[in-house]
């Protein structure tokens, strides 16, 4: 059963002068219940735009022109079965937010309101969403502090008195505070050192199991994504290139981009090999060329890749790929 299912989603940003930046170009993927789907790709490939689209917190110039986002837990807004988030009105969407879907934001520096105490901001959202008393909220805050490893006395501080890592931890605590069904983690550990990264990821995994949460984990770091995910989605230029179980991605990745991505990661085992880089640059999303988005950088590019875009197809069970080599 899928907690979240995205079908043929197309979203673009309208730019000054009427140009369109195709940020999400016909994307479909799903998140299984209490499992994690990781999204990996380089900067600007549309990873974070997916997160904002799901929560509907896009800027005014963003236009969604096609697709559905089905969310399983209609009971949160007193409906049965799954609901299409894109058809919900503003008020109903507000009820979905943080009770149904919460988010760990990227770039923690400015996500907390600078004029209120950190603890008060976490308590505020718990009290709005769960209708609990101040005492209960305080107790829960203590628990959350233990989970993300912050001294609970620091919760009386203002955001500017926190270090970057502590802010990130506070934001993680905030995302967990209302026991949401689905968490979107957008580069949640990027601001942290490796040891905290590991600890927090382990904690998130533990809580996820305990509370039966589903998760979308977004990162440009292939190893972080593969550490935590069950299913991995590889994105490039607003499109999905390949999507499969994480084990398969490392053992039997099919798309040339995925292969190149794995090759460009450092491995502990081979010390002699030089680090591999993918030649070329990511494509322009405002004036996309025809055909496959990756063909200018693809070592296997054929004549057809230039002209026609390959279809995103299920090659074997739960393994999708968009490449002419496999059609």
């Amino acid at each position: 059963m899928n907690a979240l299912e995205i079908n043929n989603l197309i979203m673009y940003y309208e730019l000054f002068g009427g140009n369109k930046l195709m940020a999400i170009n016909n994307i479909s993927f799903s998140v299984e219940e209490s499992k994690t789907t990781g999204i990996v790709g380089e900067s600007g490939c549309g990873k974070s735009s997916i997160a904002s689209t799901i929560l509907k917190i896009l800027p005014d110039n963003a236009k969604i022109i096609n697709g559905n986002i089905y969310f399983k837990y209609g009971e949160i807004i007193k409906r049965s079965g799954k609901v299409d988030l894109l058809t919900l009105d503003k008020k109903t969407m507000q009820d979905i937010r943080w009770k149904g879907i919460s988010m760990i934001f990227q770039g923690a520096m400015n996500v907390l309101n600078p004029v209120y105490r950190v603890g008060d901001q976490i308590i505020e959202i718990m009290r709005y969403k769960d209708n609990i008393s101040k005492e209960e909220a305080n107790e829960k805050l203590e628990d959350l502090c233990r989970i993300v490893n912050i001294d609970s006395s620091r919760m009386k501080d203002y955001p500017h008195q926190f270090s970057g890592g502590m802010k990130q931890k506070a934001i993680i605590a905030m995302a967990l505070s209302t026991n949401p069904k689905l968490i979107i983690a957008d580069e949640p550990t990027t601001a942290l050192d490796l040891i905290s990264q590991y600890n927090i990821l382990e904690q998130i995994k533990k809580i996820q199991k305990k509370l039966n949460m589903s998760m979308i984990f977004i990162s440009h770091n292939l190893f972080t994504v593969s550490n935590i995910s069950d299913q991995v989605v590889v994105m490039y230029a607003g499109k999905i290139m390949e999507s499969c179980e994480k084990k398969k991605l490392f053992e039997n990745s099919l798309h040339p981009y995925s292969i190149a991505l794995i090759k460009s990661c450092l491995s502990i085992n081979d010390k002699k090999n030089k680090l591999y880089g993918i030649p070329g640059e990511p494509p322009n999303l405002v004036f996309p060329s025809s055909g496959c988005a990756f063909y200018p950088r693809c070592p296997y590019a054929k004549e057809i890749c230039k002209k026609i875009e390959p279809e995103y197809k299920e090659i074997e069970k739960k393994h999708f790929v968009a490449c002419w080599r496999y059609i």
Partner: peptide, 26 residues
């Protein structure tokens, strides 16, 4: 346009709270 206002929106806080406690207050 600040992150903390967008984050408050993402949390599904009521409009009045976002307007007064987040956007206007700053």
């Amino acid at each position: 346009k600040e992150d903390y206002v967008i984050a408050a929106k993402a949390r599904g806080l009521p409009d009045k709270v976002i307007r007064n406690k987040y956007a206007a207050r700053n």
